[in-house]
Nucleic acid binder design. Structure first.
Lengths: 76, 76, 76, 76
DNA sequence: CGGACAAGTTTGCCAC
DNA sequence: GTGGCAAACTTGTCCG
């Protein structure tokens, strides 16, 4: 029936909006963590720098692992 | 104990990284939803436009409430 | 002449700085308008809220036009 | 009459919006200058850095002048 | 001076 | 793969 397409669209949009609502919640949670840290005397900017740096380290590590896997595969 | 400050910092960073990991997961989930919709024949750009528009509507509504509060306060 | 590249760069920077000077002037003019309104008994915060709201309305309208275009394109 | 307050408010908002429209125009003009420079082979990021640096120099110079004036005044 | 708000800058994404 | 577009983050500004 012609209703089907509409319902499917509705479902898609709802799923996306649900996911985005969760993301927004988490983002606010993160902000609260930073504020709490700030009230405990931590420098937020420095904290963010640390987190960013560790994220880059992780990405670099992931790249390394991927390379190792690639080499292993190439070696049969 | 002298370990405390270190542990507090460690805890903060872990909590942030945990939240960010969840956000990343959800972002990937959203991407999959769009891909699935695309494979069902939907136009992704139009879908995103719809979601963006609905989000703006929500923001506008929230803004309206805030404005009412502002006016109330301004009227003393 | 070899002077040309330098002059072109000089011209560019001057044009940008000229524009930025005008922007700064206008920003100061806006501030004066708010101060004048305040001295006439208006609540500056509420005034700014009104202006912001009207701006959002305009943006929403512009967005609507964009959406219509998107839909048209999506419908091929 | 009660109309007066409304008209005054209207005038205020119109003046502000007029100023903001001019600011927006100028901002777009600046963007065009950067794009034009880019199409002439300049690095936009570097250009912006130059402009920012010169702005800081100007502020520093203005501070210096202000200090000189202050000293002159203090010396009678 | 500290937090709220806006501006600018950077980053990731998608279309070409 | 490149360049334009939209979103996130960072920086600066203004008010209380």
């Amino acid at each position: 029936m012609s209703e089907q397409g509409h319902n499917q669209l509705t479902t898609i949009v709802q799923r996306i909006e649900s996911v985005e609502a969760e993301i927004k919640e988490l983002g606010e949670g993160r902000k609260e963590i930073y504020l709490e840290a700030k009230s405990n005397g931590y420098d937020v900017k420095a904290l963010k720098a640390i987190v960013a740096r560790r994220r880059q380290d992780q990405e670099k590590l992931a790249n390394h692992e991927m390379l190792v896997d690639t080499y292993e595969a190439a070696l049969g």
